[in-house]
């Protein structure tokens, strides 16, 4: 069964073999001791779209990623990839089927150069035994580094580069395996404004190639600009889903982010000495024009 799936894993364009979404997270629950980190989370990710997963710190976003990529076993619930239940599939096999992820806490190979980091990924993708053969992927690697914008760092050791660069390196490493689904955990933190803009364009390009992108991100400008769908996670539960415009207006989201929403009874939150919050000073800025279109 798994070997069949692996046969198809060669190209992400072969994923049209089933009708449902590429990734389905179905009523996933994760408990640590008595604390529920993820509570009945349900969401999907589709090819060609960028899906945002947002929420306050500690809402359970990274735990969701760990469940999807197989690093964390869910207490209950199912993860389906290409229509198949992968809840008990080992990490590496999920990757072979077309999942790639980056980490919030960086996991670059610190002893290796940036280029070798990506080479390792390419080697693993080709198969360990084929790794004996001399690699003919030199040019591809450099093209990949160029694409994510870190070619200048190619010969630096990965534990000596800035955080933002290391995040892009993790993305490049993922892309070396040509994944159908990209799980990006806070990819833009550590990037400056111009770099973030370029990164947004890159995300749209990657989606346009038919990949599904699921992204945990704190930079609301970026999220609003590039995401097609946004799911808001709070307290382990999905409290809202929809396109950026919908999310921006959702009172539950405001409440999750601000601690209260405009619609709440003002008496319960006596803020007499603070100016009233108008829509203009809203936390989540409007989508920037141009990016992603």
């Amino acid at each position: 069964m798994s070997s069949l799936a692996e046969t198809f894993a060669g190209s992400h364009r072969a994923s049209g073999s089933h009708d449902g979404p590429l990734l389905e997270v179905d009523h996933v629950v994760v408990q640590f001791g008595g604390v529920t980190a993820v509570n009945e989370a349900c969401f999907t990710a589709d090819p060609g779209t960028v899906t945002g997963l947002i929420g306050p710190n500690g809402a359970g976003k990274t735990t969701c990623f760990n469940v999807i990529s197989g690093l964390q076993k869910p207490t209950r619930g199912t993860v389906r990839f290409q229509g198949k239940d992968v809840s008990s599939t080992p990490v590496h096999r999920r990757s072979k089927r077309g999942m790639g992820r980056t980490f919030q806490r960086l996991e670059a190979f610190g002893s290796l150069s940036v280029r070798d980091n990506v080479k390792v990924a390419a080697d693993i993708h080709r198969g360990v035994l084929k790794g004996f053969l001399p690699g003919g992927h030199g040019k591809n690697i450099d093209a990949l580094l160029e694409r994510v914008g870190i070619a200048a760092y190619a010969d630096e050791r990965a534990d000596s580069i800035p955080t933002g660069t290391a995040r892009l390196l993790e993305l490049a490493r993922c892309l070396a395996g040509d994944p159908k689904l990209l799980l990006l955990d806070e990819p833009s933190s550590g990037l400056d404004e111009t770099e973030t803009d370029a990164f947004g364009d890159l995300l749209r390009d990657l989606a346009a190639e038919g990949r599904a992108i699921l992204m945990v991100e704190h930079d609301m400008d970026l999220v609003m600009a590039v995401c097609d769908v946004i799911h808001v996670l709070d307290f382990g539960s999905i409290i809202a889903s929809g396109d950026p415009a919908t999310i921006r207006r959702d009172p539950a989201v405001q409440k999750a982010y601000l601690g209260y929403s405009d619609e709440d009874d003002a008496d319960a939150h006596t803020v007499t000495d603070l100016p009233a919050v108008s829509d203009d000073t809203m936390v989540i800025p409007a989508a920037r024009e141009g990016v992603g279109s």
């Binding site: 096999r93 990757s95 999942m99 980490f103 670059a108 190979f109 360990v128 490493r173």
Partner: peptide
């Protein structure tokens, strides 16, 4: 040696 988790998510059956 540097990161078993990353190797796993890159598809290496460690």
């Amino acid at each position: 040696r540097d990161s078993p988790a990353a190797c796993g998510t890159l598809g290496l059956d460690q």
